[in-house]
Simulated assay, not measured.
Amino acid sequence: MQLKEKQLVEDFYKSKFHKDTSIIEKYLDKDAVIYWNSSSGFFKLNYHDFAVMAEEMGKAFEGLSCEITHLLQEDNMVTVRFTYHVNTIEDPDEEGALAHFICIWEVKNNKLHEGHLISQPGDDSEENIASFLPKR
């Protein structure tokens, strides 16, 4: 089994698509649909909706980085667990966890086609940060 789908997902989240939304077209299928269960409710996003949201993220944060803790693949389905860390414009020297996510992506024709996303507000507690480490 090839792991190109897994690499595609990792590269997408490590990219700076929020600062340059033209990068999105390299990764996201034009017919993409994202089903997002967030702490604010349910959202269904298409390609355009996602690009608009990414552009707003780029404006809202001085810096945004993605910490991937899990990346699993089965056939053309890739699951990723990650945390977005941000630096706000008001406090560019302080980085904090924005939100924690798990997304299951269907990859079709070498693009992210359908995503099922769950998120919750970020927290920098040691238990949460260390939750992906092996138990001793």
Rank of each mutant, 00 (worst) to 15 (best):
L3M: 08
K4N: 05
K4G: 01
K4V: 05
K6L: 14
F12E: 11
F12T: 06
Y13N: 03
K14E: 11
K14F: 12
H18N: 02
T21V: 13
E25Y: 06
K26E: 14
L28Q: 08
L28E: 01
K30V: 03
K30D: 01
A32N: 02
V33T: 04
I34F: 11
I34H: 02
Y35E: 10
N37R: 05
S38T: 15
S38Y: 11
S39K: 04
G41E: 05
F42E: 06
F43S: 06
L45V: 02
N46S: 10
Y47V: 03
H48V: 08
H48N: 07
V52Q: 06
M53Y: 11
E56K: 10
K59P: 00
K59V: 02
A60E: 12
E62T: 07
G63F: 11
L64H: 09
S65M: 07
E67Q: 09
H70P: 01
L72Y: 15
L72G: 08
E74T: 10
D75C: 03
N76W: 10
N76D: 15
N76V: 03
M77Q: 14
M77A: 13
V78C: 02
T79S: 15
T79M: 14
R81V: 02
T83V: 12
Y84R: 01
Y84D: 01
V86E: 03
V86A: 05
V86G: 03
V86I: 11
I89A: 09
E90I: 15
E90V: 15
E94H: 12
E94Q: 09
E95D: 09
G96L: 12
G96C: 12
A97S: 07
A99C: 08
F101R: 08
C103L: 09
I104V: 13
N109A: 03
N110G: 07
G115P: 13
H116S: 15
H116K: 15
L117A: 01
P121F: 14
G122N: 12
D123H: 15
E126W: 14
E127H: 08
N128M: 10
I129T: 06
S131Q: 14
F132W: 08
F132D: 03
L133I: 01
L133G: 02
P134V: 01
K135A: 00
K135G: 00
R136L: 14
